[in-house]
């Protein structure tokens, strides 16, 4: 087993883990269940997190390679008492059906809007190309990203 310190949503955490383990598994085992597991193939995006500011599939990251790094999950950008405008936008646009894809979708949106506050439709689609959603047909999700962009522009 290995040990390492990670900075997760602003807090330092020490985990013991198997050197073969995926970051997804270790995060979930340690209570970060907002990071979802849909495939472990890198295809669905339910496990998406920000790793040192970069959007990645946590199932495609070996835990050992993330030691010392900054991890942000969907809980790290806002919570139910003070949600992030993107989280509000997803709610208002009815972009959340089952919600299993939602944490990943929201982080992909966050990552997009950080560098590109006023994305065009095709840029939005491209930014969400790593997130599968079987419920919504993506229409309301794309609406939500546009709404989030407007909301954040107003702030």
């Amino acid at each position: 087993m290995m040990e390492g310190i990670f900075r997760i949503n602003g807090k330092e955490k020490r985990f013991t883990f198997n050197p073969r383990s995926r970051l997804l598994t270790v995060l979930r085992e340690n209570g970060y269940t907002e990071v979802k597991e849909g495939c472990k193939e890198g295809e669905c995006g339910a496990c998406i997190i920000l790793l040192d500011g970069r959007l990645v599939n946590s199932c495609q990251v070996l835990t050992a390679s993330a030691i010392g790094k900054e991890i942000i999950t969907v809980k790290g950008i806002g919570d139910i008492h003070s949600p992030h405008p993107i989280q509000e936008a997803f709610v208002e646009a009815s972009a959340v059906q089952c919600g299993f894809c939602t944490p990943g979708m929201i982080l992909s949106t966050y990552y997009l809007l950080k560098d590109n506050p006023n994305p065009k439709e095709d840029e939005i689609r491209k930014a969400l190309d790593g997130n599968l959603c079987r419920c919504t047909g993506y229409v309301k999700i794309i609406d939500a990203v546009k709404l989030a962009s407007r909301k954040m522009g107003e702030k």
Partner: peptide, 9 residues
């Protein structure tokens, strides 16, 4: 290639 999060990796 691949997808946005994978291209980051």
């Amino acid at each position: 290639s691949a997808s946005t999060p994978l291209r980051n990796r």
